[in-house]
Design a protein around this nucleic acid. Structure first.
Lengths: 225, 225
DNA sequence: ATTACTAATATCCGAGTAG
DNA sequence: TCTACTCGGATATTAGTAA
Protein backbone atom coordinates (compact mmCIF):
# COMPACT_ATOMS: atom_id res chain seq x y z
CA UNK A 1 0.00 0.00 0.00
CA UNK A 2 1.36 3.35 -1.08
CA UNK A 3 2.23 5.81 1.67
CA UNK A 4 0.12 8.57 0.12
CA UNK A 5 -2.90 6.29 0.11
CA UNK A 6 -2.25 5.21 3.67
CA UNK A 7 -2.12 8.87 4.55
CA UNK A 8 -5.52 9.49 3.05
CA UNK A 9 -6.98 6.49 4.86
CA UNK A 10 -5.43 7.72 8.09
CA UNK A 11 -6.81 11.20 7.71
CA UNK A 12 -10.20 9.79 6.89
CA UNK A 13 -10.08 7.80 10.11
CA UNK A 14 -9.45 10.98 12.08
CA UNK A 15 -12.70 12.40 10.76
CA UNK A 16 -14.74 9.25 11.13
CA UNK A 17 -13.88 8.70 14.78
CA UNK A 18 -15.87 5.60 15.60
CA UNK A 19 -17.07 3.08 13.08
CA UNK A 20 -19.63 5.60 11.97
CA UNK A 21 -19.90 6.66 8.37
CA UNK A 22 -19.09 10.14 7.18
CA UNK A 23 -21.28 12.16 4.85
CA UNK A 24 -19.10 14.61 2.99
CA UNK A 25 -17.77 15.58 -0.43
CA UNK A 26 -14.42 15.32 -2.15
CA UNK A 27 -14.19 19.11 -2.17
CA UNK A 28 -14.59 19.36 1.59
CA UNK A 29 -12.07 16.56 2.08
CA UNK A 30 -9.61 18.15 -0.33
CA UNK A 31 -9.73 21.20 1.88
CA UNK A 32 -9.01 19.23 5.04
CA UNK A 33 -6.33 17.05 3.47
CA UNK A 34 -4.51 19.78 1.57
CA UNK A 35 -4.97 17.95 -1.70
CA UNK A 36 -6.90 18.73 -4.87
CA UNK A 37 -10.47 17.52 -5.18
CA UNK A 38 -9.41 15.28 -8.06
CA UNK A 39 -6.71 13.66 -5.99
CA UNK A 40 -9.10 12.91 -3.16
CA UNK A 41 -11.54 11.44 -5.65
CA UNK A 42 -8.85 9.21 -7.10
CA UNK A 43 -7.65 8.11 -3.68
CA UNK A 44 -11.15 7.23 -2.59
CA UNK A 45 -11.66 5.17 -5.73
CA UNK A 46 -8.46 3.22 -5.10
CA UNK A 47 -9.16 2.77 -1.39
CA UNK A 48 -12.57 1.42 -2.31
CA UNK A 49 -11.07 -0.98 -4.87
CA UNK A 50 -8.65 -2.21 -2.23
CA UNK A 51 -11.60 -2.91 0.04
CA UNK A 52 -10.35 -0.49 2.68
CA UNK A 53 -13.36 1.80 2.56
CA UNK A 54 -16.97 1.52 1.50
CA UNK A 55 -18.71 4.35 -0.26
CA UNK A 56 -22.17 5.43 -1.17
CA UNK A 57 -21.69 7.94 -3.95
CA UNK A 58 -24.50 10.22 -5.05
CA UNK A 59 -24.64 13.33 -7.13
CA UNK A 60 -25.00 15.38 -3.95
CA UNK A 61 -21.94 13.99 -2.18
CA UNK A 62 -20.86 10.70 -0.70
CA UNK A 63 -20.94 8.65 2.44
CA UNK A 64 -17.74 6.93 3.50
CA UNK A 65 -17.12 4.14 5.94
CA UNK A 66 -13.85 2.44 6.75
CA UNK A 67 -14.11 -1.33 6.43
CA UNK A 68 -12.75 -3.88 8.88
CA UNK A 69 -9.89 -4.43 6.48
CA UNK A 70 -9.18 -0.70 6.44
CA UNK A 71 -9.25 -0.52 10.22
CA UNK A 72 -6.85 -3.47 10.36
CA UNK A 73 -4.46 -1.56 8.16
CA UNK A 74 -4.52 1.35 10.60
CA UNK A 75 -4.49 -0.84 13.68
CA UNK A 76 -1.36 -2.56 12.45
CA UNK A 77 0.50 0.74 12.47
CA UNK A 78 -1.05 1.59 15.81
CA UNK A 79 0.20 -1.63 17.41
CA UNK A 80 3.67 -1.18 16.01
CA UNK A 81 3.92 2.38 17.26
CA UNK A 82 2.48 1.25 20.57
CA UNK A 83 5.20 -1.33 20.99
CA UNK A 84 7.75 1.42 20.35
CA UNK A 85 6.35 3.98 22.76
CA UNK A 86 4.94 1.71 25.44
CA UNK A 87 7.76 -0.77 24.94
CA UNK A 88 6.86 -3.28 27.59
CA UNK A 89 6.75 -7.03 27.73
CA UNK A 90 3.38 -8.50 27.19
CA UNK A 91 1.72 -11.82 27.50
CA UNK A 92 -0.82 -12.88 24.91
CA UNK A 93 -3.19 -15.74 25.51
CA UNK A 94 -4.91 -17.49 22.64
CA UNK A 95 -7.48 -20.22 22.44
CA UNK A 96 -8.02 -22.11 19.24
CA UNK A 97 -9.56 -25.25 17.86
CA UNK A 98 -7.11 -27.88 16.63
CA UNK A 99 -7.32 -28.87 12.99
CA UNK A 100 -5.18 -30.82 10.55
CA UNK A 101 -3.17 -29.06 7.90
CA UNK A 102 -1.88 -30.61 4.72
CA UNK A 103 1.44 -31.51 6.23
CA UNK A 104 3.28 -28.92 4.22
CA UNK A 105 4.88 -27.33 7.28
CA UNK A 106 6.75 -30.53 8.07
CA UNK A 107 8.57 -30.29 4.75
CA UNK A 108 9.65 -26.71 5.30
CA UNK A 109 10.75 -27.33 8.85
CA UNK A 110 12.97 -30.15 7.75
CA UNK A 111 14.95 -27.85 5.46
CA UNK A 112 18.42 -27.48 6.93
CA UNK A 113 18.58 -23.69 6.69
CA UNK A 114 15.32 -23.29 8.57
CA UNK A 115 16.04 -26.06 11.05
CA UNK A 116 19.45 -24.68 11.94
CA UNK A 117 17.90 -21.29 12.59
CA UNK A 118 15.24 -22.78 14.86
CA UNK A 119 17.89 -24.61 16.86
CA UNK A 120 20.10 -21.57 17.15
CA UNK A 121 17.44 -18.97 17.82
CA UNK A 122 14.73 -20.87 19.69
CA UNK A 123 17.04 -23.21 21.52
CA UNK A 124 15.30 -26.39 20.45
CA UNK A 125 15.11 -28.71 17.47
CA UNK A 126 11.47 -28.57 16.45
CA UNK A 127 9.37 -31.60 15.75
CA UNK A 128 8.70 -31.36 11.99
CA UNK A 129 5.20 -30.06 11.63
CA UNK A 130 3.00 -27.41 13.15
CA UNK A 131 0.01 -27.56 15.39
CA UNK A 132 -2.68 -25.57 13.62
CA UNK A 133 -5.20 -23.74 15.75
CA UNK A 134 -8.23 -21.95 14.40
CA UNK A 135 -8.70 -18.92 16.64
CA UNK A 136 -12.22 -18.77 18.00
CA UNK A 137 -12.84 -15.13 18.82
CA UNK A 138 -12.19 -11.95 16.92
CA UNK A 139 -10.43 -10.55 19.95
CA UNK A 140 -7.90 -13.38 19.58
CA UNK A 141 -7.44 -12.52 15.92
CA UNK A 142 -6.83 -8.90 16.85
CA UNK A 143 -4.45 -10.00 19.60
CA UNK A 144 -2.56 -12.01 17.02
CA UNK A 145 -2.14 -8.90 14.92
CA UNK A 146 -0.85 -7.08 17.97
CA UNK A 147 1.57 -9.90 18.71
CA UNK A 148 2.73 -9.70 15.12
CA UNK A 149 3.60 -6.06 15.59
CA UNK A 150 6.02 -6.90 18.37
CA UNK A 151 9.60 -7.82 17.93
CA UNK A 152 9.94 -11.55 17.76
CA UNK A 153 12.61 -14.04 16.93
CA UNK A 154 13.31 -13.58 13.25
CA UNK A 155 13.74 -16.59 11.01
CA UNK A 156 15.42 -15.34 7.89
CA UNK A 157 14.51 -16.09 4.30
CA UNK A 158 16.90 -17.82 1.93
CA UNK A 159 16.96 -19.12 -1.61
CA UNK A 160 18.31 -22.10 -3.46
CA UNK A 161 18.56 -22.67 -7.20
CA UNK A 162 14.82 -23.18 -7.55
CA UNK A 163 13.03 -20.69 -5.37
CA UNK A 164 12.92 -18.35 -2.44
CA UNK A 165 11.90 -19.51 1.00
CA UNK A 166 10.14 -16.79 2.99
CA UNK A 167 10.90 -15.37 6.38
CA UNK A 168 9.00 -15.95 9.60
CA UNK A 169 8.77 -14.59 13.09
CA UNK A 170 8.59 -16.67 16.27
CA UNK A 171 7.45 -16.01 19.79
CA UNK A 172 8.18 -18.35 22.65
CA UNK A 173 5.02 -19.92 23.92
CA UNK A 174 3.56 -22.35 26.41
CA UNK A 175 0.96 -24.81 25.14
CA UNK A 176 -1.82 -25.86 27.52
CA UNK A 177 0.39 -24.71 30.40
CA UNK A 178 2.56 -27.77 29.86
CA UNK A 179 4.77 -27.72 26.78
CA UNK A 180 7.31 -25.07 25.90
CA UNK A 181 7.33 -24.22 22.24
CA UNK A 182 6.82 -21.27 19.95
CA UNK A 183 4.24 -19.56 17.81
CA UNK A 184 5.41 -19.20 14.22
CA UNK A 185 4.05 -16.39 12.12
CA UNK A 186 4.90 -17.06 8.50
CA UNK A 187 5.29 -14.03 6.28
CA UNK A 188 3.32 -15.31 3.32
CA UNK A 189 1.31 -18.02 4.94
CA UNK A 190 -1.40 -19.82 3.03
CA UNK A 191 -3.41 -19.60 6.21
CA UNK A 192 -5.25 -16.43 7.09
CA UNK A 193 -5.04 -14.29 10.19
CA UNK A 194 -7.30 -16.52 12.23
CA UNK A 195 -4.90 -19.43 12.27
CA UNK A 196 -2.14 -19.84 14.83
CA UNK A 197 0.75 -22.17 14.02
CA UNK A 198 2.61 -23.67 16.94
CA UNK A 199 5.83 -25.65 17.07
CA UNK A 200 7.64 -27.46 19.87
CA UNK A 201 10.56 -29.82 20.37
CA UNK A 202 8.08 -32.66 20.83
CA UNK A 203 5.06 -34.00 19.00
CA UNK A 204 2.43 -31.94 20.78
CA UNK A 205 -0.59 -33.93 19.65
CA UNK A 206 0.78 -37.06 21.23
CA UNK A 207 2.21 -35.51 24.37
CA UNK A 208 -1.09 -33.84 25.20
CA UNK A 209 -3.32 -36.53 23.65
CA UNK A 210 -4.99 -34.00 21.38
CA UNK A 211 -7.41 -34.66 18.56
CA UNK A 212 -8.89 -32.44 15.89
CA UNK A 213 -11.57 -30.23 17.37
CA UNK A 214 -9.94 -29.98 20.81
CA UNK A 215 -9.51 -26.52 22.25
CA UNK A 216 -5.88 -25.63 22.88
CA UNK A 217 -4.59 -22.75 24.95
CA UNK A 218 -1.41 -20.94 23.97
CA UNK A 219 0.37 -18.35 26.05
CA UNK A 220 3.00 -16.27 24.28
CA UNK A 221 5.57 -13.85 25.52
CA UNK A 222 6.48 -10.82 23.50
CA UNK A 223 9.33 -8.59 24.40
CA UNK A 224 9.84 -5.26 22.74
CA UNK A 225 13.51 -4.80 23.45
CA UNK B 1 5.81 16.21 5.81
CA UNK B 2 5.37 14.02 2.77
CA UNK B 3 3.70 10.65 3.33
CA UNK B 4 6.55 8.75 1.66
CA UNK B 5 9.05 10.38 4.00
CA UNK B 6 6.89 9.66 7.01
CA UNK B 7 6.77 6.09 5.86
CA UNK B 8 10.54 5.86 5.78
CA UNK B 9 10.79 7.42 9.23
CA UNK B 10 8.18 4.98 10.50
CA UNK B 11 9.97 1.97 9.06
CA UNK B 12 13.22 3.18 10.51
CA UNK B 13 11.57 3.37 13.92
CA UNK B 14 10.54 -0.27 13.63
CA UNK B 15 14.17 -1.25 13.24
CA UNK B 16 15.51 1.06 15.90
CA UNK B 17 13.15 -0.05 18.64
CA UNK B 18 14.32 1.98 21.58
CA UNK B 19 16.21 5.20 21.38
CA UNK B 20 19.24 3.24 20.32
CA UNK B 21 21.08 3.96 17.12
CA UNK B 22 21.18 1.61 14.18
CA UNK B 23 24.30 0.71 12.26
CA UNK B 24 23.34 -0.24 8.75
CA UNK B 25 23.64 0.72 5.09
CA UNK B 26 21.29 2.20 2.53
CA UNK B 27 21.46 -1.06 0.56
CA UNK B 28 20.28 -3.12 3.51
CA UNK B 29 17.55 -0.61 4.23
CA UNK B 30 16.47 -0.51 0.59
CA UNK B 31 15.96 -4.24 0.84
CA UNK B 32 13.81 -3.95 3.96
CA UNK B 33 11.84 -0.96 2.72
CA UNK B 34 11.27 -2.18 -0.80
CA UNK B 35 12.83 0.94 -2.27
CA UNK B 36 15.93 1.56 -4.32
CA UNK B 37 19.18 2.28 -2.53
CA UNK B 38 19.20 5.74 -4.05
CA UNK B 39 15.74 6.49 -2.73
CA UNK B 40 16.69 5.47 0.79
CA UNK B 41 19.79 7.62 0.55
CA UNK B 42 17.72 10.61 -0.55
CA UNK B 43 15.11 10.06 2.14
CA UNK B 44 17.75 9.85 4.83
CA UNK B 45 19.29 13.10 3.61
CA UNK B 46 15.94 14.87 3.75
CA UNK B 47 14.99 13.39 7.14
CA UNK B 48 18.30 14.58 8.47
CA UNK B 49 17.77 18.08 7.07
CA UNK B 50 14.37 18.16 8.71
CA UNK B 51 16.02 17.30 12.01
CA UNK B 52 14.05 14.08 12.36
CA UNK B 53 17.06 11.79 12.37
CA UNK B 54 20.75 12.09 13.14
CA UNK B 55 23.32 10.27 11.08
CA UNK B 56 26.93 9.34 11.25
CA UNK B 57 27.90 8.54 7.68
CA UNK B 58 31.09 6.74 6.82
CA UNK B 59 32.36 5.04 3.70
CA UNK B 60 31.58 1.67 5.33
CA UNK B 61 27.97 2.42 6.18
CA UNK B 62 26.09 4.68 8.51
CA UNK B 63 24.66 4.95 11.99
CA UNK B 64 21.15 6.33 12.35
CA UNK B 65 19.29 7.66 15.34
CA UNK B 66 15.82 9.14 15.47
CA UNK B 67 15.80 12.52 17.19
CA UNK B 68 13.28 13.71 19.75
CA UNK B 69 11.63 15.70 17.00
CA UNK B 70 11.40 12.59 14.87
CA UNK B 71 9.90 10.59 17.71
CA UNK B 72 7.37 13.37 18.26
CA UNK B 73 6.31 13.07 14.67
CA UNK B 74 5.65 9.36 15.16
CA UNK B 75 4.10 9.79 18.58
CA UNK B 76 1.61 12.23 17.18
CA UNK B 77 0.26 9.57 14.82
CA UNK B 78 0.38 7.05 17.64
CA UNK B 79 -1.77 9.19 19.91
CA UNK B 80 -4.29 9.88 17.21
CA UNK B 81 -4.62 6.22 16.34
CA UNK B 82 -4.81 5.43 20.04
CA UNK B 83 -7.74 7.77 20.49
CA UNK B 84 -9.47 5.97 17.61
CA UNK B 85 -8.90 2.44 18.80
CA UNK B 86 -9.01 2.95 22.54
CA UNK B 87 -11.64 5.66 22.23
CA UNK B 88 -12.23 6.50 25.84
CA UNK B 89 -12.58 9.69 27.81
CA UNK B 90 -9.49 10.79 29.54
CA UNK B 91 -8.44 13.32 32.08
CA UNK B 92 -5.17 15.14 31.67
CA UNK B 93 -3.55 17.04 34.50
CA UNK B 94 -0.95 19.71 33.85
CA UNK B 95 1.19 21.83 36.08
CA UNK B 96 2.83 24.93 34.77
CA UNK B 97 4.50 28.12 35.84
CA UNK B 98 2.55 31.30 35.19
CA UNK B 99 4.18 33.88 32.94
CA UNK B 100 3.08 37.02 31.14
CA UNK B 101 2.53 37.02 27.42
CA UNK B 102 2.57 40.06 25.19
CA UNK B 103 -1.16 40.56 25.43
CA UNK B 104 -1.74 39.51 21.84
CA UNK B 105 -4.29 36.90 22.77
CA UNK B 106 -6.62 39.54 24.20
CA UNK B 107 -6.84 41.16 20.77
CA UNK B 108 -7.72 37.93 19.02
CA UNK B 109 -10.26 36.91 21.62
CA UNK B 110 -12.05 40.20 21.24
CA UNK B 111 -12.68 39.56 17.55
CA UNK B 112 -16.39 38.99 17.09
CA UNK B 113 -16.08 35.82 15.00
CA UNK B 114 -13.88 34.15 17.58
CA UNK B 115 -15.85 35.47 20.53
CA UNK B 116 -19.17 34.28 19.16
CA UNK B 117 -17.72 30.82 18.65
CA UNK B 118 -16.41 30.70 22.21
CA UNK B 119 -19.81 31.69 23.58
CA UNK B 120 -21.64 29.20 21.42
CA UNK B 121 -19.29 26.25 21.75
CA UNK B 122 -17.79 26.66 25.21
CA UNK B 123 -20.85 28.12 26.84
CA UNK B 124 -19.11 31.18 28.26
CA UNK B 125 -17.94 34.59 27.18
CA UNK B 126 -14.20 34.46 27.81
CA UNK B 127 -12.28 37.15 29.60
CA UNK B 128 -10.10 38.67 26.85
CA UNK B 129 -6.65 37.25 27.36
CA UNK B 130 -5.07 33.90 28.13
CA UNK B 131 -3.32 32.57 31.17
CA UNK B 132 0.05 31.34 29.93
CA UNK B 133 1.58 28.39 31.70
CA UNK B 134 5.06 27.07 31.04
CA UNK B 135 4.84 23.30 31.48
CA UNK B 136 7.47 22.06 33.89
CA UNK B 137 8.01 18.43 33.01
CA UNK B 138 8.53 16.67 29.70
CA UNK B 139 5.79 14.24 30.64
CA UNK B 140 3.41 17.19 30.72
CA UNK B 141 4.61 18.28 27.30
CA UNK B 142 4.01 14.79 25.97
CA UNK B 143 0.60 14.72 27.65
CA UNK B 144 -0.22 17.96 25.89
CA UNK B 145 0.60 16.33 22.57
CA UNK B 146 -1.68 13.45 23.50
CA UNK B 147 -4.44 15.86 24.46
CA UNK B 148 -3.97 17.58 21.12
CA UNK B 149 -4.61 14.31 19.33
CA UNK B 150 -8.03 14.02 20.89
CA UNK B 151 -11.19 15.49 19.55
CA UNK B 152 -11.78 18.84 21.11
CA UNK B 153 -14.07 21.76 20.63
CA UNK B 154 -13.13 23.21 17.26
CA UNK B 155 -12.87 26.96 16.83
CA UNK B 156 -12.96 27.59 13.12
CA UNK B 157 -10.70 29.85 11.09
CA UNK B 158 -12.03 32.79 9.12
CA UNK B 159 -10.73 35.62 6.99
CA UNK B 160 -11.47 39.28 6.47
CA UNK B 161 -10.20 41.61 3.74
CA UNK B 162 -6.71 41.72 5.21
CA UNK B 163 -5.76 38.28 6.45
CA UNK B 164 -6.66 34.81 7.62
CA UNK B 165 -7.30 34.05 11.27
CA UNK B 166 -6.29 30.52 12.22
CA UNK B 167 -8.26 27.75 13.81
CA UNK B 168 -7.94 26.46 17.36
CA UNK B 169 -9.06 23.59 19.48
CA UNK B 170 -10.41 23.83 23.02
CA UNK B 171 -10.79 21.42 25.88
CA UNK B 172 -12.89 22.17 28.93
CA UNK B 173 -10.69 22.52 31.97
CA UNK B 174 -10.66 23.25 35.67
CA UNK B 175 -8.00 25.64 36.94
CA UNK B 176 -6.60 25.04 40.42
CA UNK B 177 -9.67 22.95 41.18
CA UNK B 178 -11.69 26.14 41.39
CA UNK B 179 -12.39 27.89 38.10
CA UNK B 180 -14.06 26.34 35.08
CA UNK B 181 -12.48 27.37 31.83
CA UNK B 182 -10.79 25.81 28.83
CA UNK B 183 -7.40 25.03 27.40
CA UNK B 184 -6.92 26.59 23.97
CA UNK B 185 -4.55 24.98 21.53
CA UNK B 186 -3.87 27.40 18.73
CA UNK B 187 -3.01 25.88 15.37
CA UNK B 188 -0.13 28.15 14.52
CA UNK B 189 0.78 29.46 17.91
CA UNK B 190 3.85 31.57 18.41
CA UNK B 191 4.37 29.59 21.60
CA UNK B 192 5.94 26.19 21.47
CA UNK B 193 4.65 22.87 22.74
CA UNK B 194 5.63 23.52 26.32
CA UNK B 195 3.18 26.36 26.80
CA UNK B 196 -0.42 25.85 27.84
CA UNK B 197 -2.91 28.65 27.17
CA UNK B 198 -5.96 28.78 29.39
CA UNK B 199 -9.10 30.88 29.14
CA UNK B 200 -12.07 31.34 31.45
CA UNK B 201 -15.14 33.54 31.80
CA UNK B 202 -13.36 35.45 34.55
CA UNK B 203 -9.98 37.12 35.04
CA UNK B 204 -8.18 34.10 36.47
CA UNK B 205 -5.15 35.99 37.80
CA UNK B 206 -7.35 38.13 39.99
CA UNK B 207 -9.82 35.46 41.08
CA UNK B 208 -7.01 33.18 42.25
CA UNK B 209 -4.61 35.97 43.28
CA UNK B 210 -1.92 34.65 40.99
CA UNK B 211 1.39 36.22 40.11
CA UNK B 212 4.07 35.38 37.55
CA UNK B 213 6.05 32.38 38.72
CA UNK B 214 3.18 30.75 40.58
CA UNK B 215 2.49 27.11 39.83
CA UNK B 216 -0.96 26.51 38.39
CA UNK B 217 -2.72 23.19 38.07
CA UNK B 218 -5.01 22.53 35.13
CA UNK B 219 -7.25 19.51 34.74
CA UNK B 220 -8.68 18.92 31.27
CA UNK B 221 -11.29 16.55 30.00
CA UNK B 222 -10.97 15.01 26.58
CA UNK B 223 -13.69 13.03 24.98
CA UNK B 224 -13.11 10.97 21.89
CA UNK B 225 -16.67 10.72 20.65
C1' DA C 1 32.11 -2.18 0.32
C1' DT C 2 30.01 2.38 0.90
C1' DT C 3 27.07 7.26 -0.11
C1' DA C 4 25.00 10.12 -3.20
C1' DC C 5 25.23 12.67 -7.64
C1' DT C 6 22.96 13.28 -12.41
C1' DA C 7 19.84 11.95 -15.74
C1' DA C 8 16.15 9.10 -17.38
C1' DT C 9 11.85 7.14 -16.23
C1' DA C 10 7.81 6.18 -13.67
C1' DT C 11 4.34 7.88 -10.92
C1' DC C 12 1.39 11.17 -8.96
C1' DC C 13 -1.09 15.41 -8.80
C1' DG C 14 -4.25 18.79 -10.23
C1' DA C 15 -6.31 21.98 -13.99
C1' DG C 16 -9.88 21.67 -17.14
C1' DT C 17 -14.04 19.77 -17.91
C1' DA C 18 -17.91 16.25 -18.95
C1' DG C 19 -21.80 14.03 -17.16
C1' DT D 1 -23.39 21.80 -6.74
C1' DC D 2 -21.54 16.72 -7.13
C1' DT D 3 -17.91 12.70 -8.99
C1' DA D 4 -14.45 11.48 -11.81
C1' DC D 5 -12.47 11.51 -16.54
C1' DT D 6 -8.23 13.03 -19.59
C1' DC D 7 -3.90 14.86 -19.93
C1' DG D 8 0.14 17.96 -19.28
C1' DG D 9 3.21 19.27 -15.88
C1' DA D 10 5.25 18.36 -11.34
C1' DT D 11 7.32 15.25 -8.37
C1' DA D 12 9.34 11.01 -6.87
C1' DT D 13 11.88 7.03 -7.93
C1' DT D 14 15.46 4.53 -9.89
C1' DA D 15 19.45 3.39 -13.19
C1' DG D 16 23.97 4.43 -14.07
C1' DT D 17 28.02 5.93 -11.95
C1' DA D 18 31.58 8.74 -9.49
C1' DA D 19 34.11 9.26 -5.43
Amino acid sequence: MKPSLWNTLYKLSLLLTQEKSLKTSTTRLSDKFGLAQQTVSRHLIILERLGLIERHVTVKGEEIKITTKGLDELRNVYFRLKSIFEGISETFIFEGRLFSGIGEAAYYMSLKTYRDQFIEKLGFDPYPGTLNLKLLSTSDVIAKKELEAHLGIEIESFKDKKRTYGSAKCFKAKINDKIDGAVVIVDRSHYNDSVLEVIAPVYIREKLSLKDGNIVRVETFAKTD
